[in-house]
Design a protein around this nucleic acid. Structure first.
Lengths: 344, 344
DNA sequence: CTGAAAGCGCTTACAG
DNA sequence: CTGAAAGCGCTTACAG
């Protein structure tokens, strides 16, 4: 059996357009690519343009990519296990599409194994650059990435010596959440932090500590628990917090998914929210509005971060330098009903 | 400025391996690709293999794809606005990766505009095939797809005259949910259905009606409301249902996200769940466990569906025929706490 | 047992 | 104003 044609059956190649217009391929290519240095008779140009239109011509991405050393595709490494990345995936895809780029998605779990997924993204010339949006990738792996020759930007993660990264101001976000609690009158504030190895988690913790310190407070005994991102991790962490000798009257939680679990744990433990305990989560999720009570969160500018990440990566791809940036859009308190003044 | 090399700087090309091994490129290609028809001296093969290893050689995907008319990448068209597709995206990506395929993700909203996103996927030879997992694409568009020359499979959607599709048994899933309600003793059952144009929604509605009919029941006056997928649509729909002359004692909801909204509406309206009203949603979501009360759902085998979709698409790409299939893994009731016997 | 050559679909100096 | 040719990195008949 003959191999299938590269272009979908019947699809026009450059040569077909050239034939149809009765010219050579080079001039077709230059006209279609708007080469400013062509001088061409208007009627010839018209013939070319109309032939291309008639044949519904689109340059084959592989042929073009091979010649130009540009695939016009970006790789996005992301942990697909959690719904929290939805906004980032969609923002990256759209921003890339706006720049005529296509987005290859790769699961972070497979990527960090350094197996085929890793190779496909780095050694096969499939992508012009990489967006690494996973907290999973350990520091060593990320450092190694620098030597692989593919431009990349870190999304929502900073690592000494690795540039560029695009982050949101997590410390500020955390601070805003805690100050909200403080403003309500809380003094015994607990915190469910993320894993210590995760940079985002560390920055949020720093923000929490800073806000507390400014109020001449600190995390009390048993009031800091480290947990993972998922709902049941939040559930367990909250149970621990509530078992403290003197439970907090308010708790901040590093991730909304964990917060959903934590909220469930509080209620299951007989605590009314927000009367007995207030809860605020860092990062907003649309679903937060439908919990009982609707969850107060701090909205982080993730879409802006993703957009910026794409922009910077594209600049890198173009050979321009690029520095790490912190997205300036400030985090925003989304006050719903899970926070209120302390009653104890 | 010289254009950047196609391969990451310093990456080895086939010719580099050939040079290093002191042989020609053809034999290298054949050895590396395990061409069964080569007969080669063991030491030569060893030289080639070790050179490839030493240089960390990986064939450039563009060069290879151009020659073979195989990109080894799949396109996934999906509505990225909702978290419900997370499981599908991750399943597709993994299954594709297992088959050495890479996954291009495209937002359904942009795809249906028939603009650049549509062209990139269909006319530029970027993908070997397409997985269309969006209810958004209207029938006309899907029919048109048949003429574009790119193999595709429809995920979770059937359309007369368009093959193949991979679906789960939505009618059965819906039936299981309703029979659960029936078994609990409910007789006044309401249903929040999806949009009438969506095939999934229609199949679920059919299942609901069938189960009711078998129990010699039917949807009462004002007990059927059509709503969209999002939480607030569910919220509004539930409010309508509850305003019926005689509100139902149990309601089934076509999507879990809508169900979260509906649950909130019920509680906000002063209805206790499940005492005053039972709620079951079709399709499970991990977060469902953290609602108050934890939401009873019917788990649909989405991962199996996605896996099957990839398998079938790959067969299609290989030129084999493929028929539509309904994934046989049965939907499963996940009984949590939002359903109970009627008290009215 | 192994290599030189053609060609996938494109773009870009270069020639005329 | 326009075309022929080379070459991006690969694979595969074909020749020897």
């Amino acid at each position: 059996m003959a191999p299938p044609p590269t272009k979908p059956h019947g699809a026009a190649r450059l040569a077909d357009v050239a034939d149809a217009a009765g010219v050579g391929t080079s001039i077709v290519s230059r006209v279609l690519n708007r080469d400013p240095t062509v001088s061409i008779r208007p009627e010839t140009r018209e013939r070319i343009l109309s032939a291309a239109r008639r044949l519904n011509y689109r340059p084959n991405a592989l042929g073009r990519g091979l010649k130009l050393a540009r695939t016009m595709t970006l790789g996005l490494v992301v942990n697909l296990d959690y719904g929290e990345v939805g906004e980032i995936v969609s923002a990256v895809e759209r921003r890339a599409a706006d720049a005529d780029y296509t987005t290859l998605i790769a699961d972070a779990n497979a990527f960090v194994e350094r197996g085929d997924t890793y190779s496909r993204l780095l050694f096969e010339g499939r992508v012009d650059g990489l967006l690494v949006a996973s907290g999973l990738a350990n520091d060593e792996l990320v450092r190694e990435l620098r030597g692989e020759g593919v431009p990349f930007v870190l999304l929502n993660r900073r690592l000494a010596g690795v540039e560029p990264s695009v982050t949101v101001d997590d410390a500020l976000g955390a601070r805003i959440g805690v100050e909200h609690l403080l403003g309500l009158g809380h003094r015994r504030i607990g915190y469910i932090a993320g894993p210590e190895y995760a940079d985002v988690a560390r920055r949020r913790l720093k923000g929490v500590r800073g806000a507390l310190r400014d109020a001449r407070l600190r995390l009390g005994e048993g009031h800091l628990v480290h947990g993972a991102l998922a709902g049941d991790a939040g559930f367990d962490a909250m149970e621990q917090l509530l078992a403290a000798r003197q439970p907090p009257t308010a708790v901040a939680i590093w991730s909304p998914t964990a917060a959903f679990g934590a909220l469930a744990a509080a209620k299951r433990g007989g605590f009314r929210v927000p009367d007995d305990i207030s809860i605020v989560a860092f990062q907003d999720l649309p679903l937060a509005a439908f919990f009982d009570p609707p969850l107060t969160t701090v909205r982080m500018p993730l879409r802006e971060m993703a957009d910026k990440g794409v922009d910077i990566l594209l600049r890198l791809v173009d050979g321009d330098g690029a520095k790490s940036v912190v997205v300036h859009t400030p985090p925003e308190l989304v006050e719903r009903r899970s926070t209120g003044p302390p009653t104890r």
